[in-house]
Amino acid sequence: MYTIILPVFLFALSMTITPGPNNMLLTASGARFGYRRTLPLIGGIVLGIVSQLVLSALGLGILFERLPLVKNLLKLFGVLYLLYLAYRIAFTSGKEGRTEKAQRPLNLIEGAGFQYLNPKAYMMSITAMSVYPLEGQLYIPSALLIIGFFIVITPLSISLWAGFGTLLGRVMSSTRYARGVRMLLGGMTAASVVFIVI
């Protein structure tokens, strides 16, 4: 089982630390609300990814192969939701729209739920559970090892993006740059649709 440790580590790191919908949302949330208030979103993303890994170990990839319409619908909803969030990030300042929903980051449940609209998360979990687990009696222990790697690596990787966003938030606190940074973050979030469409 030791043979999969390095490949799984590198796969989990590369999938969670590279740009994508989750990391763009975390950057925007960190900029807007700070790192501490973004922690529930970080937890939700980890929870959603782990639940997808478990479902993938139980055969989620087979479901998508047999029902491609389901996969395409999830992709469409993911794109629309991401574009909605990008709009909210770009055009809602901290002083506008003082409703509770407009003035809070995504919470644990919303972060976990977003993983089910995020095709990059599906691709990551299905690939992890179709390529790396060992066969036979070692399937369950190796699948648990893979899940363990993601439980440790994911929060560390994605926290970097939330931290980066928090630093950007300090720039946003200056009225001179706030609008430009919001537009940049909204644009980056909208651009992350590329990771869904490709």
Rank of each mutant, 00 (worst) to 15 (best):
A143D: 04
Q137K: 14
P119A: 04
R179Y: 13
G44I: 04
Y139W: 14
L160F: 12
I158F: 02
R98T: 10
V194C: 00
P119H: 04
F150A: 02
Y35D: 00
T189W: 01
G44Y: 05
L76H: 00
S142F: 03
G20K: 03
E65Y: 10
G59N: 10
I158P: 01
F150E: 03
G163H: 09
M24E: 15
F195Y: 11
P21C: 06
F64M: 10
Q137G: 11
L76E: 02
L144F: 13
L145H: 05
L117E: 01
G113M: 12
M129Y: 03
Y84T: 14
G34Q: 07
L138D: 15
T154G: 03
F77W: 10
R66I: 01
L160N: 02
M15R: 14
T16A: 15
V131N: 04
Q103M: 13
G30S: 06
L156S: 03
T166M: 12
F164Q: 11
R66L: 11
Y122I: 01
R88F: 08
F91G: 00
I147E: 00
A128R: 01
G30V: 07
I17T: 13
P133L: 14
L156M: 03
M24N: 15
L108A: 06
G136C: 08
L25M: 15
G148T: 02
A162N: 01
F33E: 08
V79F: 07
I196L: 13
L144H: 01
L6F: 14
L108W: 05
T27E: 07
P155L: 02
K120R: 12
A31T: 06
S159C: 06
L85S: 09
I126P: 04
E135V: 11
L85E: 02
N23H: 10
N22E: 11
T127F: 08
G180D: 10
M1L: 15
K75D: 00
T166H: 10
L76V: 10
I62M: 00
Q52N: 15
A178W: 08
A31K: 01
S29C: 11
S159M: 10
V79S: 08
Y177I: 11
A143H: 02
P7W: 05
Y87L: 08
E135A: 14
E100N: 04
G97C: 08
P19S: 08
M15H: 03
L82E: 05
L82N: 06
I42L: 15
S192T: 07
I62C: 00
Y87V: 05
L185D: 00
A86R: 08
L55K: 07
N118T: 05
W161Q: 10
I196E: 08
E110V: 12
L184K: 03
K101P: 00
T189I: 05
I42S: 06
Y35H: 04
F164W: 13
